[in-house]
Design a protein around this nucleic acid. Structure first.
Lengths: 383, 383
DNA sequence: GTGGGCGAACGAATCGTTTCGTCTCCGCGA
DNA sequence: TCGCGGAGACGAAACGATTCGTTCGCCCAC
């Protein structure tokens, strides 16, 4: 493989001249430049990026660590990160952890070995990994969490607002329906809107929950003593967990007489929840991520409960929600802006390590589709 | 940042001893090893991966270049690639091209600069980029295409078989229906199964088309002079292209009197295609990728044509198909095995550059869901 | 004619490791 | 006592670039 010394020899100049000519458009007189270019061309010379990195003390590479690429949330952000990084002249090394601490540690070690000029973590598991990198002066930007690490750049979404918007929307739909037919008074302890949420160990999940509770409170409902009487926690961010959570929710509701019989043997009609029961019926479920909602819909379908006829559903993320049956209303996250912002913050910190950390909070937006609207007012053309 | 010489000084040994001790579990007597470990620990020493790469002449990094991360096909493979690479001690630099030749060239340049020990291309655009890498002795493995590059490792899916399976399934469904009600003879020039396919510039698309045509032929149907009378080419692998392709298909069918009136103003009932027309009706559409199928479904919905009641649909990929309304029958690609196989082939070639190239062809499998089955026999519980 | 100034090219040090040949020292056998 | 072998540690030469201080040579002005 031709090296820079070969080029120098072929061009009849010194090694340093070749380097200068190739890197600096101003350097050398035209004739010399020409000879160097010709020699480089003839030898098909390509500078060795590794040697360059060694002396320049920069890898021209950014790291991105995410849980996986199967939940569509992450590829969406990764795509934006990659494009933004490339536009800035950086390449991207991508790591996935499958939410296993060992894998995250592995990447922490990797990035502590000068393999990247900075690292973005999306939904990092262990704060100590971030601390370790920062101690070695490796710039880090966090997306979404953990939000407790002090003094580190972070870009997040206002999850509380998102949870609030989703829940309020469901409550409004309930109110509209109640106005149309003779209403039963809502009882404070038994909210008409339930919630399915990912593992509550995460701040994100806690905040979405807080938004849900705020919306209930605002409507004069409490959701039980702890505000969680109809909140079911899914054990992971996978479809199956969402399905199980919905099964658990339905079980709880039956226990309290708030759900009637389901379609026997999958045949016949279910009685709309709003018409039969003495306790206030369940009207809607806020499922705090689209991937959980997919599982939840599966369970509802299996039990013969129809959406939105029997129950309203709102998801979160705006990923899978476009494709479900029926299309899910959801809280859209600004994934592209999240990725871009994370890269920009990282580049700023690389160029100015001393600058004060900034925490950017982006706003989610409610998107209304079929799953939260009575079927009679379904749009007939585009969803 | 503490370097190896600092460790050597602190441990009272030479630089080379430190290196040996740290890399070779056999080296040195226990007492010396202990001193070295202690010093490294105390100084929080981490070897500089870049310097190591320079001397070892390997980056311990693999490259993966894909069109994007938004079409779920690619993240699914990327996830498998990343996990397999990591298990083998490699990190992964990920590049996306957005199907722009300039971006692919950019990555070709990057990987020609020793940034990776080998590169996997999924759906590469330009063969010359691969040739250039091979000339520099950078090992390359191709996934899916281009399949025309001679002498390079490749892992692909039998797309022809996939297209065949999908089409044959649709034809079988037609036959079953025809058997149940008085049948109209099928006319050879006007197949009852249409196809929507991605840009036909790609070998993959050509092969799926070939599978479709083979199935028609086998059933004694020709699909027109060129076998493409009901084949519509989408301009890209995005939803919107699928929607437009379906609109185009419906337009063509109306021209030929093979589609009746649609639900006026989105109200009322469409007449089932099989009952009204003198020309053989359209019974099903094979949409050669799930993402196109999503768009196609959207157009059908907008025109009030129901799936599977009015027309049967089969997709390809098994990505989005689980989430659509109704769930799509589809041809499943073995994405995980594709990713794993690609990495294994690459590692083998890295360790033995001279070994003969291998082309691995994996088999797709038909998955039957609701979109290709008459609604009366829909499963009532799990899809 | 000589010295100053400047543009162009050069040389050598450096980045932080690995690796291989060499040296030292110790123990053992002749 | 001497020689030999081997284990253990060392030193220096890479790896392939960048970068900065220096030299060279030329032109112009004094």
């Amino acid at each position: 493989m031709a090296g820079i010394r070969d080029v120098a020899r072929a061009a009849g100049v010194s090694v340093s001249t070749v380097s200068q000519v190739l890197n600096n458009p101003e350097f050398g007189k035209p004739q010399t430049r020409q000879r160097v270019f010709a020699a480089a061309e003839k030898l098909n010379y390509r500078p060795n990026a590794i040697a360059r990195s060694l002396v320049r003390q920069r890898a021209d590479t950014l790291g991105l660590v995410i849980p996986d690429l199967l939940n569509p949330v992450f590829p969406t952000v990764a795509d934006a990160v990659e494009r933004t990084a490339r536009a800035a002249g950086y390449s991207l090394v991508l790591g996935t952890t499958s939410r296993e601490p060992a894998a995250e540690r592995q990447y922490r070690q990797l990035f502590m070995q000068n393999k990247a000029d900075g690292v973005i973590f999306f939904a990092a598991l262990d704060e100590s990994n971030i601390q370790a990198l920062l101690r070695r002066h490796v710039p880090v930007v966090l997306i979404e969490r953990p939000m407790s690490v002090p003094g580190v750049d972070l870009v997040g979404v206002d999850n509380r607002l998102g949870g609030y918007l989703a829940t309020r929307h469901l409550l409004e739909q309930v109110a509209a329906t109640a106005a149309a037919s003779p209403a039963q008074p809502l009882q404070a302890q038994s909210p008409p809107v339930a919630m399915i949420v990912g593992p509550l160990g995460g701040e994100v999940e806690q905040q979405r929950l807080a938004g849900y509770q705020r919306a209930l409170l605002e409507a004069g409902l409490s959701g039980g003593a702890d505000g969680k009487s109809l909140v079911v926690e899914a054990w992971d961010h996978v479809e199956e967990a969402g399905r199980q959570a919905m099964a658990e929710l339905l079980y709880r509701l039956r226990q309290r007489g708030r759900l009637g019989h389901t379609r026997p043997e999958g045949q016949g009609q279910v009685v709309p929840l709003g018409q039969l029961h003495s306790s206030p019926p369940l009207a809607g479920v806020f499922v705090a991520s689209d991937i959980l909602a997919v599982g939840a819909l599966r369970q509802l379908e299996a039990e013969g409960i129809r959406v939105p006829d029997d129950v309203l559903i709102v998801g979160f993320d705006n990923t899978l929600s476009r494709y479900t049956s029926p299309p899910l209303s959801t809280v859209a996250q600004p994934f592209v802006r999240m990725g871009e912002t994370a890269v920009h913050l990282l580049l700023e910190r690389i160029s100015d390590p001393g600058r004060p950390p900034s925490q950017v909070l982006l706003e989610p937006a409610l998107i209304i589709r079929q799953s939260s609207q009575p079927s009679t007012i379904w749009p007939t053309s585009k969803p």
